[in-house]
């Protein structure tokens, strides 16, 4: 790996950055809009289940946008995906299995 290569890489990044800036701004606008949508939706007085599902869907979209674009996860390396997949699997297991344990009670 030579320094030449790094310079090329940086140069390429410089070309791309202006393109990226546009993406960041559109993500920002989407996040702002989705925030307003989620607040307005909460005033609709839907049923509790519908409110929860809607709010969580919107939050997940927003979260994905931040992670993918601001945190550059969309073009990240394998190692990092692996670490995150592990932690997401484990943290999904915690509430799921705990809830199962809570509701699986012996019948008298």
């Amino acid at each position: 790996m030579s320094d030449m290569h790094i310079d090329d890489f940086k140069h390429e990044a410089l070309d791309h950055i202006h393109h990226h800036l546009k993406t960041y701004v559109s993500v920002f606008v989407a996040l702002m809009a989705l925030t307003v949508v989620t607040v307005l939706a909460s005033y609709l007085k839907l049923s509790l289940t519908a409110t929860i599902i809607l709010a969580l869907i919107i939050a997940s979209i927003k979260g994905t946008l931040v992670a993918c674009y601001f945190m550059h996860l969309i073009s990240e390396k394998k190692t990092i995906y692996l670490v995150l997949i592990l932690s997401v699997l484990f943290i999904a297991g915690l509430p799921l299995l705990t809830l199962l344990a809570k509701y699986d009670v012996p019948v008298n």
Partner: peptide, 24 residues
């Protein structure tokens, strides 16, 4: 290492868990 995250409640058989989750 991977599976060790899914075995923890075997310390808790006496807490009144049901048979399904205990079997798991």
């Amino acid at each position: 290492g991977f599976l060790s995250f899914f075995v923890w409640a075997h310390h808790m058989y006496m807490t009144g868990m049901g048979t399904v989750i205990s079997a798991f």
